[in-house]
Amino acid sequence: MKEAAIRRLLAANLLCVLSVVLTAVVPAFFWDGFTVLGTHLTWLCICSGCVSTFNILLHLVLKPNLSPKRSSFAHKISRFLKCCIYFFMSCILFHAIIVLYGAPLIESVTETFLFAVLLSTFTTLQCLCMLGPNIQAWIRVFSKNGAMSIWENSLQITTMCTIFGAWFGAFPIPLDWDRPWQVWPVSCSLGATFGYTAGLIIAPLWIHWNRKQLTYKSR
C-alpha cells in the first residue's frame, strides 16, 4: 500500500516538474524572442498560471485527501471563494515580506508582485489544494510530527525548499558579475523554482528512505 502511494506521489511530482520545465521551453516555439531571462515577467505569468492549473487538475484527478462527508454545492462555492481570497491574501503577504526584506518599494512593483504570485503558487496553492482553506490544518502540517500522510510530508518539503530557494536566490544579487540573471527578481524567482523542483524530487525519495520511521497518526 505504502509503496504504491509513494509511487503515485513520485509520478505526480514528476509531472509537476515536467510542467515547470515545459513552461520554460514550450512558449519559445509559439512566440519569437521568448526566453526565461529576457522576457522574465511573461515567463513568471506563464509559469504561475501553468503550475497552478496543473496542480488543481492533478488534485482533482488524484484526490489525495478524500473528504469523508459529501458537501453541498453552496458549500463548495464558498470553499472555492475562500480559497481565492486566501490565495490573494498570501500574494499580498508575500509581497509585503519581500519588500520588508529589502526589495524596492516603488520601483518594479510588477516584478515584485509577480514574484510573490509565483511564491504563492508554489506554496499557498499547494496547501489550498491539499488542505483546503483550513488554517488549523495548515498549522498542524507545518510543525514537527504534524504530517498525517505522505502527501502532507511532500507538501512540507516542497514548501520549505521553495522558500529556501528564494532566500538563497537573493545571494548573488550584490555580486558585480553583470549577468542578466542577477537583475531583481530573476535570481530569486529562479531560486524559488529550482527549490520547488528540487523539493518535488526530494520529497518522494526522502519519504522512501524514511518509510520505516514515518508512522502517521490516524485522524
Binding site: R140, F142, S143, K144, K217
Partner: peptide, 19 residues
C-alpha cells in the same frame, strides 16, 4: 516547527487533528 506556538493538544483537539 517545534510546536511551541500552539496550545498543547488536549484530547479533544487531538481527535480533530486541529491545533
Amino acid at each position: 516547527w517545534d510546536g511551541r506556538l500552539t496550545v498543547p493538544e488536549g484530547p479533544k483537539q487531538q481527535l480533530l487533528g486541529f491545533s
